[in-house]
Design a protein around this nucleic acid. Structure first.
Lengths: 204, 204
DNA sequence: TAGATTGTTAATCGATTAACAATC
DNA sequence: TAGATTGTTAATCGATTAACAATC
């Protein structure tokens, strides 16, 4: 498998979703021009992207097999082996992510939450007190810690999660966090997204 | 002002946050090497980025004035003129964003929510029935519609918002949406972020 | 066959990095 | 002065786009 650029990786779930729609509509083949038009990419880029994750060749004049593309992208994204995560900080956003119905389709299973003071949860998922994370997290086999605590507590929440065995951090707190070597972090930065949105608004 | 790349735009709020921390700590000047080390960028990139938004020159051996940097970045990001937004779809995520305390610091004021069936809201912000959007939205002077409805309803929610006068869409629904020319859209795609995270996890 | 689409190879474009003289 | 940091200019790198022969 080639090394994919970050942009390419980010496009993969978008292809996947679109291809699933096409399959639902009964289509079995798809061509780069069709994809390019719908997704707003160039044909060449579509071909490069798909070649990067699939070894199967397309057929001139026809396109590519949707079934094999779905399989290739899902394999690439690791949707076959379900990943497990916990949510740390069960405020509004934390509870939203704890119960988010879109995750299972991404191969992500959010198994529990942690909170400094867990209220009676309205969800089916258990919410443990933060003080128990070191005992409980290892029993859950969750590699990913989703950080949804206030920015001021994010670093200490992260440290506790890593101490308890988390291997990856998905950070939703607006804070600049340090992670030890070997731990992966992905920042979900709303201020960056908003910056792009308002820049584009001002360009008009 | 030069044209900034998307990456540069996304970095600006990160600089801003860091610079505010430095000011809080009593610092008045900052050098590119210091920034580069803390944020994990290269010195050259830091200089390029700051030169792109600020006309003030730095001083050799000293660095740059934090006060003027803050001002330049905030001006660039439009934090001075507060932008207004409404949340469409007041489920878990929608309510989280309706009450998100981080937005004011980004110059964003979320003034109201809409929902097909507004429950008694626990928040200070009003939640209107979706059926009233065409009448209510224009009175709110909100340009930005934050879409947090289920994917299956996202396109029709977006269409209603635009019909009611929204000029920009911040989409949190996992759906591929069409917008008319002249309307800006920014997709907050959790599946793309997760893809990057798990790709990095697998690389180890 | 003609035409659409493919995969490959080359060209372009843009962002990041490197080099270096200027300056406080 | 020496040394750190600056801004500018050039080089590199990587991603996207273009060109085109191959093929069903």
């Amino acid at each position: 498998m080639k090394n994919l650029s970050k942009n390419q990786i980010q496009r993969m779930p978008i292809y996947l979703k679109y291809f699933k729609e096409l399959v639902d509509m009964g289509q079995t083949l798809v061509s780069s021009p069709q994809i390019a038009v719908r997704l707003g990419y160039s044909e060449e880029q579509v071909r490069k992207d798909l070649q990067a994750v699939s070894d199967e060749h397309g057929r001139p004049k026809k396109g590519r097999e949707l079934a094999s593309l779905l399989d290739a992208i899902e394999a690439f994204l690791g949707y076959h082996e379900s990943k497990k995560a916990v949510v740390i900080g069960c405020g509004h956003l934390g509870r939203a992510l704890l119960n988010y119905s879109g995750f299972p389709a991404m191969g992500l299973s959010v198994v529990a939450g942690f909170d400094v003071e867990p209220r009676q949860s309205s969800s089916a998922k258990p919410v443990y007190p933060m003080s128990q994370i070191k005992d409980v997290l290892p029993t859950l086999h969750a590699d990913i810690a989703i950080i949804t605590v206030p920015a001021s507590e994010a670093q200490s929440a992260l440290d506790l999660a890593i101490e308890a065995g988390a291997k990856a951090i998905w950070n939703f707190a607006p804070a600049l966090l340090d992670v030890p070597a070997g731990v992966v972090i992905e920042n979900e930065n709303l201020s960056s997204s908003l910056a792009v949105l308002s820049y584009r608004m001002n360009q008009r």
